[in-house]
Amino acid sequence: MSKNFLRDTQYAILLLLILLSSATTVFAQDPTPTDDEVNRIAKELYCPVCESTPLDVCPTEACRQWRELIRSMLAEGKSEEEIKQYFVTQYGARVLSEPPNRWASYLVPVAAFLLGAFLLFRGFRLWLRPVTAESASPKDEAESVSQDDYVRQLEEELKKRK
């Protein structure tokens, strides 16, 4: 159940991203692009000389120059993709907020999750088996369960209903 949910969410995220990225490329070529239009692209780029600072919030003089560069490129009618590409060729892949070959960056976490889920599932089956084999242990279980305040509480409640 949770797995389906996971997949759905990821799928939905992907869809939204596609929608978002198509939405942002649509805007018209004004003579002087506004700050908002510049920031929209600058937000997705990282300052090439600072440590982990997006270009739209970076206060240095160099960053101001880069924002102006984005503005002039927008004025020339360049698309968001073209501008990003220009930044990558000029300053390297580190200006992108994500590694360029995406699958490589997601591979390890996804693999780790699957491995963990697999181990857990196998573990569950291992742990569950002996109990069904020996019928002696459930009684033992029941005893230790009764320590649980939650169950005690429920029992209390049940008693009152009688």
């Binding site: 969410t9 390297g92 892949a93 907020s97 994500e98 590694p99």
Partner: peptide
Amino acid sequence: QKVTVGPPFYERATGP
């Protein structure tokens, strides 16, 4: 190759 791993990665990977 120097790369940045920024919010989009973490948000997408941890969101679900």
